[in-house]
Computed example of a mutant assay.
Amino acid sequence: MQDTAKRIGARFLTLRRRLKYTQEQVAEKSGINSTYYGRVERGEANISLELLVSIANTLGVSLSELLDIEPEKDRAQLFAEFVTLLENTSDDELKLAYKVVRDVLR
């Protein structure tokens, strides 16, 4: 459960930063205490459905967009997904992907 709270909090952070809002601004516009909002964003506190809707409205996204989080994947899952992505590329895209990955991992 705490893993889910941390992923939801990280999603809040991403959306809040995209709007260049402070935690205090989101909390005020959502009608909650800024300390509590900070705890939620860090994954340290659970949040009610009512507050999820309020924060979604504040951030200008639907509830489904707000909760658009992916479960953590292990190394094997990531590798399999990466291979699948590469299998469905053109030769030029594959060469570009290779160069990008090579440069990132150097």
Rank of each mutant, 00 (worst) to 15 (best):
E28Y: 08
T4S: 12
T84R: 03
D3P: 08
G43H: 06
E93C: 07
L78W: 10
Y98T: 13
A80P: 06
V61S: 00
A45I: 08
K6D: 09
L19E: 07
I47P: 05
L67N: 02
L13P: 12
E81Y: 06
R18M: 10
L67H: 07
R39M: 15
N46V: 12
E72F: 05
F82M: 10
S54D: 06
P71W: 02
Q23C: 11
R106C: 07
D68Y: 06
E41M: 04
N46M: 04
K20S: 13
N46L: 10
E44I: 04
I47H: 07
L78G: 05
L66N: 00
V40H: 04
R39E: 09
A5K: 05
D103A: 14
K20E: 13
R39W: 08
E41Q: 13
G31D: 05
L59S: 02
D68K: 09
F12H: 00
L15P: 00
P71F: 03
L96Y: 15
A10G: 14
A76M: 14
G38H: 09
L51H: 13
T84N: 11
R106P: 07
E28C: 12
F79A: 08
E87Y: 05
T22W: 07
E70N: 13
R17T: 03
E81W: 01
N46I: 07
S62M: 11
I8E: 00
D103V: 14
Q77E: 04
E93Q: 15
V53C: 11
K6C: 01
R42N: 12
